[in-house]
Amino acid sequence: MLHLRYFVAVAEELNFSAAARRLHMAASPLSQRVKDLEHELGQQLFDRSTHHVTLTPAGTALLPLARDILEQVNAIPWRLREATKPQRSTVFLGMPAGVHPDLRDRVNALAERVRDRFELKRWPGASPDLLAAVQEGKLALALARMPVADPALDSLPVMTERLGAVVPADQFAGREAVSLSELTGYAYVASPEESTPAYFEQLDHQLTSLGIKKRIKLSNTGYGGVSEIISSGLAFSISMLDEASPMQLYRLENMAVLPFTDFRPELDTNLVWRRDRGDSGDLADLVAAAREVFAEPLTS
């Protein structure tokens, strides 16, 4: 390999003194090494004169071969690292509807943190479906709305979002807040059951105990159907208070989201994974990185 390096340097410089300076050696031993290579190959590689050095046909033919060999030799260290480093796995992280942009940024930060080991892809769904997929091993992780009561699952708090009353704007014009007692004459409309986190079932029971008795039940309409009812002035609902929340995109005309003065509902979101996979299983490194990225829970 050294003889080939010497030959390439002289072939590119066409000057033994210049090539020797490039190689940080004297010209005399460089000339001898080239002669040794010529002897080994049985071919003259250079025509030498007092003032000029030129490649012979054999030298011209050897130059691209030598460059290719040296390039492959130089590539050995990184090729070896690539061959011996842990293989990159594709894993999926469940994402419920309405994930806050700040929380989405944290997910992106996690994906960047583990990119050498894992390709982290997002998978949409309602919290119950995402939790079932984590239990079955189809998803590695999931952002899930609390509560989650499954001893086989482990979780990390990642965000708490304050909730407010979604009301007909014209009936609460000029208001900056609303009391729950002012809403006792309205029906409460919850999101359809297929997309409602378990927390909202608890919230429904809590509202009943606090005097909200009327209900409007919707099915197969999604969040858009809830907005239509509220915008028409027939009911109120509860949703994320932060204007940056994607849930605000479901607002129609004549809708406002106001904080409560006498009630403080909050929605907690946790990052969830299967305990046996996260403790010492195939997701141990991923979970360790997640604990660092989500070390400080977000609030809004």
Rank of each mutant, 00 (worst) to 15 (best):
T269L: 15
G211T: 10
F236H: 06
S49Q: 11
E193C: 06
L37T: 03
S237G: 15
L37F: 08
G125L: 10
R175A: 13
L218E: 06
L120P: 07
A295E: 12
D154V: 08
E194S: 15
F118N: 00
G278I: 00
D282I: 06
V158G: 05
L55M: 06
L218I: 13
T50Q: 12
R117Q: 03
A198I: 00
A290V: 10
S31L: 10
A20N: 04
E12N: 08
P147V: 02
R175G: 11
A173M: 08
L183A: 03
L93D: 02
L207Q: 04
S127W: 03
L258A: 07
A289T: 02
L143D: 13
D282M: 06
I229R: 11
D105C: 04
R264H: 01
G224E: 14
D170E: 14
P265L: 08
K217N: 13
H24A: 13
S227H: 05
M1T: 15
L141M: 12
D170Y: 07
L183C: 03
A165Y: 07
D170R: 14
D154A: 08
A235N: 06
P128I: 06
T261S: 11
S195D: 09
A18L: 04
E119H: 09
L45T: 00
Y199D: 12
D262N: 06
P297C: 02
G164V: 03
F92H: 15
A295I: 01
L103F: 10
E228V: 05
R67Q: 13
I229Y: 03
H39M: 07
I69Q: 13
H24Y: 06
D154M: 13
A19R: 03
Y188K: 10
E228C: 02
F260D: 12
V99Y: 09
A142Y: 03
G281I: 00
P197D: 14
M240S: 15
P297Y: 03
R81N: 11
A165K: 03
R22I: 01
S179T: 13
F118K: 01
I230W: 02
F7P: 00
F46T: 00
D262V: 04
W123I: 02
G59T: 02
G42E: 05
S49N: 11
N254Q: 12
D129N: 15
R291Q: 14
L234Y: 09
R215W: 09
I230S: 08
A27C: 06
A149Q: 10
R264I: 00
T90A: 11
Q202H: 14
M159V: 05
E292M: 08
D170W: 14
Y199V: 05
I229L: 09
